[in-house]
Amino acid sequence: MNGDQFAEMAYLAILGGAVLIWYITRHRLSLGKVAQQALAWVLIFVAVIAAVGVWDDIRATITPQQSVHTDNNLIIVPRARDGHYYLTLMINNQPVQFLVDTGASQMVLNKADANKVGLNADDMIFSSVAYTANGTVATAPVRLSSVELGPYKDDRVSAWVNGGELDQSLLGMSYLQRWSSIEIRDGSLVLTR
């Protein structure tokens, strides 16, 4: 802390002390009530801080998730708060969350998800190149033993592993074309098989 910051802190402390002394002298006959009100405000402040701290957990609990309707051969995916659609598929018996990307021609796994499903990304040869909105990136072709979405299972599915920095695995058209219908209806992505 430099000298200016120390002086500012001292000024604020003196000003706060003066306001506190004025408030106590002004309300000296009802200090019990003042203490109750101060405690109430402190508890409200602590509650707000706690709510902000656990907001992501609360939001994850109340956010609608993808649902499967087998009677109509439908998979219904609600739009996320960020405006995108996310699907969780079982890849080689491991859950992997994908961003649905109709602009991507292939199913693309990031390195972390590739490792999660039993593919060793460190041993792959990234010999292919993909042209993305962020430039070119090296990719490695892979074959996934099984891809499951609800009751629907596909075996030996072609995919690519991204050799660059990719935060979210992408579900592109190579997988989406396996469905007879893809539509957006009432804010949800509806896949029909």
Score class of each variant (00 low, 15 high):
N2I: 02
D4H: 09
Q5Y: 11
Q5A: 15
A7V: 07
A7D: 15
E8D: 15
Y11D: 13
A13I: 11
L15A: 12
G16N: 14
G17T: 09
V19M: 12
L20H: 02
I21G: 09
I24N: 01
I24Q: 01
H27D: 10
R28Y: 11
G32C: 04
G32H: 06
G32Y: 01
V34E: 15
A35I: 14
Q36N: 12
Q36K: 11
Q37Y: 14
Q37C: 11
Q37A: 14
V42R: 04
V42G: 11
V42K: 05
L43A: 14
L43I: 14
I44M: 11
I44R: 02
I44D: 06
V46P: 03
V52T: 03
G53D: 11
V54S: 13
V54I: 15
D57W: 12
I58W: 08
R59F: 11
R59L: 13
R59S: 15
A60L: 07
T61A: 07
I62G: 09
I62N: 07
T63I: 01
Q65T: 12
V68G: 10
T70E: 14
D71S: 14
D71P: 06
D71K: 07
N73I: 13
L74C: 03
L74A: 04
L74Y: 06
I75N: 04
V77Y: 01
V77S: 00
P78L: 03
R79E: 15
D82I: 06
D82F: 08
Y85F: 15
Y86R: 10
I91F: 01
F98T: 10
F98W: 05
L99W: 04
L99P: 04
L99E: 13
T102V: 08
Q106V: 09
Q106I: 01
M107E: 09
V108W: 02
N110P: 10
N115Y: 00
K116N: 13
V117M: 01
G118E: 08
A121K: 03
D123H: 08
M124T: 06
I125W: 02
F126L: 02
S127C: 02
T132G: 09
A133E: 02
T136V: 14
T139C: 10
T139N: 06
P141R: 04
R143I: 15
S145Y: 07
E148G: 04
G150W: 01
P151T: 10
P151A: 06
Y152M: 10
Y152D: 08
V157S: 00
V157H: 00
A159L: 00
A159C: 08
A159M: 05
A159N: 06
W160L: 14
N162C: 04
N162D: 05
G163W: 01
G164L: 01
L166Y: 08
L166F: 02
Q168E: 14
L171I: 11
G172V: 01
G172P: 10
G172C: 04
M173E: 02
Y175N: 05
R178M: 12
R178L: 13
W179V: 07
S180A: 00
S180P: 05
E183S: 10
I184D: 07
G187S: 04
G187V: 05
G187Q: 03
S188L: 00
S188T: 13
L189E: 12
L189H: 08
V190N: 12
T192A: 01
T192I: 00
R193A: 03
R193T: 09
